[in-house]
Amino acid sequence: MSTAKKEYKRVTVKSLVDMKKNGEKISMLTAYDYSMAKIVDAANVDVILVGDSASNVMAGHETTLPITLDQMIYHASSVIRAVNRALVVVDIPFGSYQSDPKEALRSAIRIMKESGAHAVKVEGGQEIKESVKRILNAGIPVMGHLGLTPQSIYKFGTYTVRAKEEEEAHKLIEDAKLLEKMGCFAIVLEKIPAKLAKEVAESVSIPIIGIGAGNGVDGQVLVIHDLLGITQEFNPRFLRRYLNLYEEMGNAISKYVDDVKTRDFPSDEEQY
């Protein structure tokens, strides 16, 4: 299989399917604001996820559940204004699609119209199929999310690895095939055994993007605050920190405070 990297001026849902066919891995990161999204997009990340993880890293909540649809639209609008290349996918937040397909469609339409996003993401399989069907029928691209689904954390009771048992693993594979059959353009698999994730990726034609799902999938996603080391308390096995910005930013800010206190800042050259 070819691994030649094709240059995409604008990444689309079709681009991602082409990447899978060509054996090119897909890079995906979160962003929640204009400044960060501009940096991520300029670095040629393929997909930017405006994740409901904003509830954790931007607002300080313990879970993703509290964030609202209005807040997700605000974050997505900020990201869209910064992006020239990446495909921007937005999480539909908890309570905005699960039980009522009509509400699911209204939520997806609001995200698309008010933020200018390119696609939406939902968590679940068989149990939300009517909501997914309604959104897809409106022409809105949908990315699925299986495995550990943070919006269901109180049902699971833990953030441990999912689908280790045969029954849950079988359901996950069937849910992935269902989402593909319905028309989803990609699926995120979170925190499941690498062997199972590889099996899912090989059993469907749409891209499978992993987070804590091994390297046998078609791409990877991380939360930008985790990758950059801005968050410190989150240390799962799958996380690779590429910087320690928490420390570097703290040092820079401490130096600024010292310079102000000692009257070193501003200098003569920094005045008018």
Score class of each variant (00 low, 15 high):
K5P: 00
K9V: 08
G23M: 04
K25M: 14
I26A: 14
S35V: 06
A37M: 07
K38E: 09
D41A: 02
S53E: 00
M58G: 03
A59W: 06
A59P: 00
A59S: 10
T64M: 01
I67R: 04
I67K: 00
H75V: 02
S78T: 03
R81Q: 06
R81T: 00
R85E: 02
G95A: 08
S96L: 01
Q98H: 07
S99H: 08
R106E: 15
R110S: 14
E114H: 13
E114S: 14
A117S: 11
H118F: 11
A119Y: 10
G124N: 06
G125W: 06
K133E: 13
K133T: 15
L146P: 08
G147D: 07
G147N: 08
Y159S: 07
A163G: 02
A169C: 07
H170S: 15
L172G: 01
K177A: 06
L179D: 13
L179T: 14
E180R: 10
L189M: 07
I192A: 02
K195Y: 04
A197R: 10
K198F: 04
K198D: 08
E199V: 14
V200E: 09
E202P: 02
S203V: 10
S205L: 14
A213M: 13
G216Y: 07
L222I: 05
V223Q: 05
L227D: 00
G229S: 03
I230H: 00
Q232F: 00
E233I: 10
R237S: 05
R241H: 01
R241P: 01
L245T: 01
E247H: 02
I253R: 03
V260C: 12
K261S: 05
T262A: 09
S267M: 01
E269L: 12
Q271K: 15
